[in-house]
Structures are given as structure tokens and as C-alpha cells.
Nucleic acid binder design. Structure first.
Lengths: 222, 222
DNA sequence: TCACACGTGTAACATATGTTACAAAATTGA
DNA sequence: TCAATTTTGTAACATATGTTACACGTGTGA
């Protein structure tokens, strides 16, 4: 088990013996699931930290008619819904279903608290995980609040320019990733960039962008 | 100071003597600010937990042109940007500026980790805070990320129906308010409702809505 | 070396939403 | 009760974005 946990983000930079110590006298369970079994139910209270040790699971929403919508895939080794263990509304946001044969580790919440108090690395790893999630969502929300693709792109490159203190930017993400971050399609993003280029607001050549008209970019963000 | 902290969400349900114990041999600073002083700088790395003890602060974004946009107000006693202490991108997301005379408590990150390891209540309170933030954002994002007006409206009335356990709903908000909530224009919302009515997915008469086809409403939410 | 995946550029067309405008119905206040 | 105001219904048109498809270059692994 420890060999697997070492690769889990919650136990990052924690050695095997240290993991051993953290788990000492902690009550936990191991469970195995066949394919397509439900590991956790949507809206059920989260009472445990569940770590997916082996296999792949998926989160899916269920509607009244019984139809399901797959939300995301979760690969091992990873904790399931870590941002929903604590907080006001600590219920599973989705059904979690095994997509292959899977093996999980189930630790009661209060035991997990104990574990975090034993290991500052575990504590910090968990914090990083949940905080990272909040930060990711926060950023994504900001992007969604700009109405137009050009507005989102303007915001994005203006931030890069500001951070690097230059008008010459090299995009680090692919158009695909960027489009995903913005919540738009890739061709639409490409078109927006092209139009900004044609309007001489930026000069765009593949991933290299030069900002020509900062004022117009700000206007687009409104 | 303890009298103030008792009302801070991070120290909820922790008694004064317990707070005393948690702070024992912890290094921290108190600082005071006049009105309109910057307490923390946007994009600066978060190295401390800062708790606003007295006064009111505001978060504001600054763009290159020097224009500022107020994002939120923060009242005492509350931690500043708790979701940005840990995580990948732990920089202040905004400038934090005193809006009145303020007094703050500044605890280095590593000391705060120590404190959480001393007190499971503090640990859980902090977790609840950050997780609650993630959950709130997640909820908000779900709402904003419905691509279509029909999707947002479907989500809205399905929630109402679920809460009241009926298929007959009376909208409490005017179309104007609702359109504003969705971030769309009023005629567009009216059109969406009309089309749902024409497609016999709902029966809409002014503010009175009857859900006819739950399945289709769920489809619209994709 | 070659097939293949991947990222990018672009085009034609479909669709959703915004914009503007006006009329009818409902509500409000005197 | 009646005028004024708000709310709702609707239409024509403009625009932004999505959808689908294909071409081109680049790197990569067999």
C-alpha cells in the first residue's frame, strides 16, 4: 500500500517509513470494487477520506429520469472529492463509480484529522490540494465573467505582459488548453486572435504575441 | 485580542484559554493601518495568515493603466484570503486596502501550521473555511457554466421544484431580475421561456410555471 | 524513413443571444 | 376610477460563437 501512496499527491515528499508512522493505530478500511459499482453516492454525507489506490473511477451526475452525465475521470492514486470532506456542504457532488476493477482506502474523517496533526507534510499537501482547487475555480470563474472571447484573451495576455513586464508574450498553453480554460471552442479562439491581429491590436504569430494597443485591449474587457 | 478572535470563524467554538494555549510560543505580529493603506499587494506571495482584527478592508484589482476595481469588502474579525495561503498559486489575488483604521494580526505560515497541529478545532475550522470556499465557487461555476439560457432556467426551476417537492412553481423574481441573475438580457430570457412552452417542456403563464418534461430539462442542462 | 498524432490556420454554415423597438397586460398610487 | 409605471410578450435584425471540415506543418516513435 505504501508504495502506491507515495505517488498520491496527498503523500507527496513523504517517505515510506513516515507514511508508516502516520498510519500507526489509525483505523482504516480497504475495499475492492468490480467494474461499474458505485463507490460513493451523490448527496450522501462525506464521512471518510477515500483514496483511489488502483483502477479508474468516474464522477457522474444522475437525474430523475435515471440518465447519467459523466463529469470527470479520476485516476489512481488520488483522493476522491477532497474539497468536499470539510466545509458547509460536505456531500458528494456526484456519484462516484468504478470504471475498472478498483481498490480504495477509506479513512474516517476524524482519523484523517489525527493524521494531519501528526504530519505537517500531509497537512500541507492536503491544504495545497483543496486550496489549489479553490484557486483554480476562482480563476476559471473570472474568465467566465468576461462576456467575449476577445475580452478573456485580452485579460489573459495583459496579465502575462504585466507579470513579465514586457509587451512580447509567448503563450505557454496550446490553443486547445487555452480554449478549455476560457470555456470556448478552439476555432473560435483562433478566430478571435486572428481578428485582433487584423485589427492591429496585437501582432500574433503562432504562440508569439506582441501587444500593439493596450488601450483597445482594456476596452475589450468591459 | 482573544476576545476578538473568539468571533473569528477560524476560532469558532474554541475557548479563550484554548486560544491562549494555541498561541503559546508562536511568533506573530500586530499591525495597524490608517485609512487607504495597502495591507497586502496583489500578486505578492502569501507568506502569512493575516487576520483582520478591527476595521474594514476591501479587495481591489489593479490593472496596468492604474484603474482599480473593488471586488469585495472584508469585515473584521476575519482572515484575509484564506484560500490563497496554500496551494500552487499562493499569491494575493487582489490588493487588500484598509477602508477604515484597521488592526491586523500577522502569523507566518509555518507557525500557523504548528497551530493547526496543536488544535484539531482550529484545523477543522480552517479546512471548513477553505473547503466551503471551493464548494461555493464550484456551485457558482456550475450555474455560470450552463452554456444556454434554457440550461440556466432549467437548473433554476428544477431546483425550485425539488425544494418545494412539486412541479408547479411560481417565480418570485421578475424577468428583469432573473435575467440579471443569469447574466442575460430580458427579451432573450422571455424568448427562451416561450420556446420551452411551445416545445411543451414547461407550461408557462406569466410567473406560473408547470414542469411537463423533466427529462428534457435535464438534457438542456448539459 | 514513413505513418501518425498534434497543433495551428481557416472557411462555410448553423444557431443562440443581444439589440432595439413597440404593444398589451398587470400593478400601483392618487 | 384613471393615469402612470412596471412587467410581460413579441418581432426584425445584427452579431458572436459554435460546428464541422479540411489543409498544412512539425515532431515523434516504430
Amino acid at each position: 500500500m505504501n508504495d502506491i501512496l507515495i505517488n498520491c499527491p496527498l503523500f507527496k515528499d513523504i517517505e515510506a517509513e513516515e507514511i508508516q508512522r502516520i498510519f500507526d493505530k489509525i483505523f482504516y478500511q480497504m475495499k475492492e470494487y468490480e467494474i461499474n459499482e458505485i463507490i460513493a453516492y451523490q448527496d450522501e454525507k462525506v464521512e471518510h477520506l477515500i483514496i483511489l489506490l488502483e483502477g479508474i473511477a468516474r464522477g457522474e451526475m444522475v437525474d430523475i429520469s435515471g440518465k447519467t452525465i459523466v463529469i470527470e475521470e479520476i485516476e489512481s492514486p488520488k483522493p476522491l472529492a477532497p474539497a468536499f470532506i470539510f466545509g458547509i456542504n460536505n456531500n458528494y457532488p456526484v456519484n462516484i463509480v468504478s470504471q475498472t476493477n478498483t481498490k480504495i482506502l477509506k479513512i474516517p474523517k476524524f482519523e484523517f484529522v489525527k493524521m494531519m496533526q501528526r504530519s505537517d507534510k500531509l497537512l500541507i499537501n492536503f491544504m495545497n490540494n483543496v486550496s489549489g482547487r479553490a484557486q483554480f475555480l476562482s480563476q476559471k470563474l473570472k474568465f467566465l465573467s468576461f462576456h467575449s472571447i476577445k475580452g478573456k484573451f485580452a485579460y489573459y495576455i495583459l496579465n502575462l505582459a504585466k507579470n513579465n513586464n514586457t509587451n512580447y508574450i509567448t503563450l505557454q498553453l496550446s490553443q486547445n488548453k487555452l480554449a478549455e480554460l476560457f470555456g470556448v471552442t478552439r476555432p473560435s479562439l483562433a478566430r478571435a486572435i486572428r481578428e485582433l491581429h487584423n485589427d492591429k491590436i496585437i501582432r500574433a504569430d503562432a504562440k508569439n504575441i506582441q501587444i500593439l494597443n493596450t488601450y483597445e485591449l482594456y476596452e475589450l474587457m468591459k
